[in-house]
């Protein structure tokens, strides 16, 4: 789930921080720059793990900052493909389920990765799974008795498998103005999204599997 990435960068330390030990000041600057940000093709940065190599602080012409060349290790959130995660259901709609890890919200389970047969109940705003059912059409499934349905409710803890992740680097671009009025910008894609699956035995709300033995697995 978490990994260490080695990164090389140049950071500037403001003169007001010269009183601090240099390694402290540099770590602060790096945390300020990277913490809680998505680094393209690397992942969501959490915090600096340690500094591996710090060059001599140099003053450049034009400002009073000390510039350090640093090589450091960063704790990064980047689950690998096929990793199993625990997450909470944030919301459900017709397209799929949105999950949250608390510090990271762009986790999706599209409908094609839900266990079969599965349908969305518009009244409950939640998906449900009909184990051992022959129903194929959504209509048939919505006619099923409520007691057979296994709902994936909001707030439930689910076990999911990471299928793939995607980075989007959308340039904001120049503001579009027509007739002198600034246009509303369209919603940007999140910079980092993870697509997960629960279409497998053992995945899904943890409560489904708590007392299931190996026998249940074999049936499925």
């Amino acid at each position: 789930m978490f990994q260490l990435s080695i990164i090389k960068d140049t950071v500037a330390v403001h003169p007001s921080n010269f009183g601090l030990p240099p390694e402290h000041a540099v770590t602060n600057e790096l945390n300020k720059k990277y913490a809680n940000r998505v680094l393209h093709d690397v992942g969501l940065c959490v915090c600096v793990f340690d500094l591996s190599e710090v060059g001599e602080g140099k003053v450049r012409y034009g400002d009073g900052f000390l510039w350090y060349k640093v090589i450091f290790r960063l704790v990064v959130f980047r689950p690998f493909a096929s990793e199993v995660l625990l997450a909470k259901v944030k919301s459900s709609d017709e397209d799929g389920i949105r999950l949250t890890l608390g510090f990271f919200d762009d986790v999706h389970v599209p409908q094609m990765f839900l266990p079969e047969p599965c349908a969305f109940d518009p009244n409950e705003r939640a998906f449900f799974w009909l184990p051992n059912s022959e129903a194929t059409s959504t209509h048939d499934m919505l006619d099923s008795p409520l007691t057979d349905r296994m709902y994936i409710d909001t707030g439930e803890v689910v076990r999911v498998r990471v299928e793939h992740d995607e980075f989007n680097d959308d340039e904001p671009g120049p503001p579009k103005a027509s007739e002198g009025v600034q246009q509303q910008r369209e919603r940007r894609r999140p910079p980092y999204t993870i697509t997960c699956s629960i279409a497998e035995q053992g995945l899904g709300p943890t409560a489904w599997w708590q007392n299931a033995g190996v026998e249940a697995m074999d049936e499925g």
Binding site: M1, F2, Q3, L4, S5, I6, I7, K8, D9, L39, D41, V42, V46, C47, F49, I71, R73, V75, R78
Partner: peptide, 23 residues
């Protein structure tokens, strides 16, 4: 900025938690 090694090591949740608690 330059990424030297994208995945130098994997960390377990427990390690990350201890690090964050220390911070």
């Amino acid at each position: 900025m330059e990424v030297i090694n994208q995945r130098a090591a994997l960390l377990s949740n427990y390690e990350v938690l201890s690090l964050l608690r220390e911070l």
